[in-house]
């Protein structure tokens, strides 16, 4: 306590004698302190994190890339792809067409007429492509735009309703496709968090192996 008190008096005297000198040294101190944290937080910390990541977890740190059986990279496990071939499983609507150089969506509000038009067009297209499945079974995730525009997943229900179409086009029996979807259905994290989901790219890779 006493030491603090003495310091206080000393500083007050200094301020009194060299007012502008202490102001300059105050600003100089602030600049030095800022520089220290720019270096620690802005340069050392991210570079150290990168070094640790690249040494110990390189595949996770470099985008979790997936390879096909021939060893070629076909994409990232985490980033969705655009599928137009009707014999493959399709993912969600993406206004950026799964171009992961960017990300995002049109941000349509719930009453936006363009969004309602797009949704009703998707439903009509669905009816044409999937005559065997009643539209009342079509899950919402297949006809809505994901937030990122890169959603790699669909719900298990959204995979199930595509099975009749794919079975017709490929000749693979529906039971086999159901088993495949079940195999590629990921549960909730720790059995609790999030939703059950199917990774469309992984599912299609397995489908093409058949």
């Amino acid at each position: 306590m006493r030491r603090v008190g003495n310091d206080h008096i000393v500083i007050q005297e200094q301020n009194h004698e060299h007012g502008h000198v202490s102001k300059a040294s105050f600003i100089f101190s602030v600049i030095r302190l800022s520089a220290i944290f720019i270096i620690i937080c802005g340069i050392a910390y991210p570079l150290a994190s990168t070094a640790i990541a690249q040494t110990f977890m390189p595949s996770r740190a470099n985008g979790s890339l997936l390879k096909n059986s021939a060893g070629q990279v076909v994409g990232s496990e985490l980033i969705g792809q655009s599928f137009t071939n009707p014999a493959l499983f399709h993912g969600r609507v993406s206004s950026i067409e799964y171009n992961a150089a960017g990300s995002g969506s049109n941000n349509y509000g719930p009453s936006n007429p363009d969004m309602l038009q797009r949704t009703s067009d998707s439903i009509n297209q669905w009816k044409t492509d999937n005559p065997d499945v009643p539209v009342t079974e079509l899950p919402a995730d297949l006809i809505t735009n994901s937030g990122s525009g890169l959603d790699p997943h669909i719900s298990p229900a959204a995979a199930a309703v595509q099975i009749p179409r794919i079975s017709n086009l490929t000749g693979i029996p529906a039971e086999q496709l159901e088993a495949l979807v079940a195999e590629y259905t990921e549960g909730r994290d720790l059995g609790l968090f999030g939703e059950k989901r199917v990774n469309v790219l992984k599912l299609n890779m397995a489908l093409l192996e058949k």
Binding site: R92, Y108, P110, D141, T144, G147, D151, H153, I154, S155
Partner: peptide, 8 residues
């Protein structure tokens, strides 16, 4: 409402 949301 799944517009703007992620399946996971």
């Amino acid at each position: 409402s799944m517009e703007g949301k992620e399946v996971r």
